[in-house]
């Protein structure tokens, strides 16, 4: 760290009209400087922003790297399933493939994970099932974050009567059990696609985010730096989005990422119950549901879609944890 000395020798520039500067403070910085340099030798000269720093921090976290790689893989799988398998997941050969056991030698082949009770390739179905899960997870989360985030922000920031009305509405929605509500709502759709599931879960799921956001905004709103912003003449938009939101968003992101896993699980549950996605859509939940009939004789039929579901949920929860830590500069 050769530039410590550089910092040490910093002399305030004498300016006309400015007589002398506080020498004491300068010395203070020199003392503190050593700590600063020690703490972030790489970052110090780069231009910095909250998200940039968070990103730099995340790159060094194994938990993040593992979950990010997994999620990336799942997303690619969801978009380009054919890149992972050339077997048609809907092709059923009851004669030859009925409950055929996994063939471990057939890596990436149709028989790798075995075949289900309809003679369909389990490997191909696990690959193609990612699309439904990831779509539901990401879009429901996006919907509830925007809807809940805005609601919570408005309630927390404006307070008073606005808060009272918005919070009561939130409470009403909060009172509806997610699964039960989704069952009722989905029954109203004639044909159920991924998008009907997204709408149903989005309409019912935003309250948790709204509550978290409202609480965070209420706390941050009190902080002196928000008062300082008001004292400078900052408008509502600036206070909300520059001061309050970045300081209130961390718990929302954590809750949202963890909830994302939950929505994927809920979609699977709904499909399992037969009220979520329907054939011909391919979903892990549907496959888990159909696997239960043969669980004694062919447990692998249940195992692979269930494992895919668990890994996906876990990956998003781990990502949530890593992101929370990275977004809090104080923890660095």
């Amino acid at each position: 760290m050769p530039d410590i000395h550089d910092e040490d020798s910093y002399e305030p520039h004498p300016k006309p009209g400015v007589s002398h500067l506080d020498y004491a403070g300068e010395q203070g910085m020199a003392v503190e400087q050593e700590t600063l340099v020690e703490r972030d030798p790489v970052k110090r000269e780069e231009a910095r922003s909250l998200w940039g720093d968070a990103w730099r921090d995340l790159r060094g976290r194994p938990i993040f790297l593992i979950s990010a790689v997994l999620i990336l893989l799942l997303v690619v799988m969801a978009i380009f399933p054919w890149a992972f398998t050339d077997t048609d997941p809907r092709k059923a050969d009851l004669v030859n493939d009925y409950l055929r056991r996994p063939n471990w030698g057939d890596v990436f082949g149709g028989g790798w994970f075995g075949y289900d009770a309809q003679g369909r390739s389990i490997y191909a179905r696990v690959i193609y099932g990612a699309r439904a899960s990831i779509t539901v997870g990401i879009f429901v989360t996006a919907a509830v974050t925007v809807l809940g985030g805005l609601t919570g922000m408005v309630a927390g920031y404006f307070g008073g009567a606005v808060d009272a009305v918005v919070s009561r509405i939130t409470d009403i929605f909060f009172g509806i059990p997610l699964l039960l509500g989704a069952l009722v709502l989905l029954n109203a759709f004639a044909t159920r696609t991924v998008w009907s599931v997204v709408i149903a879960l989005g309409v019912l799921g935003w309250t948790q985010i709204a509550r978290v956001m409202r609480g965070a905004v209420l706390t941050v709103k009190q902080a002196d730096f928000v008062v300082a912003g008001r004292a400078l003449g900052a408008g509502t938009g600036r206070l909300m989005f520059r001061h309050i939101l970045p300081n209130a968003i961390a718990p929302v992101i954590v809750v949202a990422t963890i909830a994302l896993g939950g929505y994927i699980a809920t979609e699977a549950t709904l499909s399992f119950l037969g009220i979520g996605l329907q054939d011909p859509t391919i979903s892990w939940g549907i496959d888990i549901s159909s696997a239960q009939k043969v669980i004694r004789t062919a447990p692998y039929v249940l195992f692979f879609p269930a494992a895919a579901l668990s890994v996906t949920v876990l990956a998003f929860i781990m990502l949530g944890d890593a992101v929370r830590d990275a977004l809090d500069p104080k923890l660095r």
């Binding site: 020498y23 004491a24 010395q27 020199a30 003392v31 503190e32 050593e34 700590t35 020690e38």
Partner: peptide, 22 residues
Amino acid sequence: YAIKGLPPNLLRIPPGCAFNPR
């Protein structure tokens, strides 16, 4: 009268007398 500088960081106490930089 002000003592110059800041109390030291306990992770890096200056060598010798801890007060010497101030």
